[in-house]
Simulated assay, not measured.
Amino acid sequence: MSSARRPDWATLPNAVTLVRLVLLVPVCVLLAGGPDTVAVVLLLLWASTDWVDGVLARALNQTSRTGEIIDPIADRLGLAAIVLTLTLTGLLPWLALVVIVLSDVAVALLASRAALGRRISVSALGKVRTFVLMAAVLLLAAAAAWVPGLLPAVQALLWAGVAMHVVASADYVLRARRAPRAAPAGEGPPSPR
Rank of each mutant, 00 (worst) to 15 (best):
83 V>Q: 09
13 P>M: 14
68 E>V: 12
70 I>Y: 11
68 E>S: 10
63 T>R: 09
77 L>N: 06
25 V>A: 13
85 T>F: 05
25 V>F: 04
68 E>I: 02
14 N>E: 15
27 V>F: 12
70 I>L: 15
32 A>V: 01
16 V>S: 09
25 V>R: 02
15 A>K: 14
84 L>S: 14
55 V>M: 09
45 L>N: 01
29 V>F: 13
48 S>W: 07
11 T>Y: 12
26 P>I: 00
57 A>E: 09
57 A>V: 08
51 W>H: 07
7 P>I: 04
43 L>Y: 06
13 P>K: 06
21 L>N: 03
46 W>T: 00
44 L>F: 15
13 P>C: 14
30 L>W: 08
45 L>D: 01
73 I>T: 09
45 L>I: 03
8 D>Y: 14
74 A>Q: 00
84 L>G: 07
55 V>F: 14
38 V>E: 10
17 T>Q: 05
15 A>M: 15
81 A>E: 02
25 V>T: 12
55 V>C: 11
85 T>N: 04
42 L>K: 00
18 L>F: 15
5 R>I: 15
27 V>H: 05
8 D>L: 11
83 V>E: 11
19 V>N: 03
50 D>K: 04
16 V>C: 12
48 S>F: 10
42 L>R: 00
28 C>I: 10
71 D>G: 09
57 A>G: 05
85 T>P: 07
13 P>A: 13
77 L>A: 09
17 T>E: 13
34 G>H: 08
26 P>A: 02
78 G>C: 10
26 P>S: 07
68 E>W: 03
82 I>R: 01
15 A>W: 15
66 T>M: 15
48 S>Q: 06
11 T>P: 06
48 S>H: 01
13 P>Q: 12
75 D>E: 08
63 T>W: 00
10 A>N: 14
34 G>E: 06
20 R>M: 07
52 V>L: 15
81 A>R: 03
12 L>T: 05
71 D>K: 11
23 L>H: 05
37 T>A: 14
12 L>P: 00
37 T>K: 07
72 P>T: 06
18 L>D: 11
67 G>Y: 04
56 L>E: 14
40 V>I: 03
78 G>Q: 09
19 V>E: 00
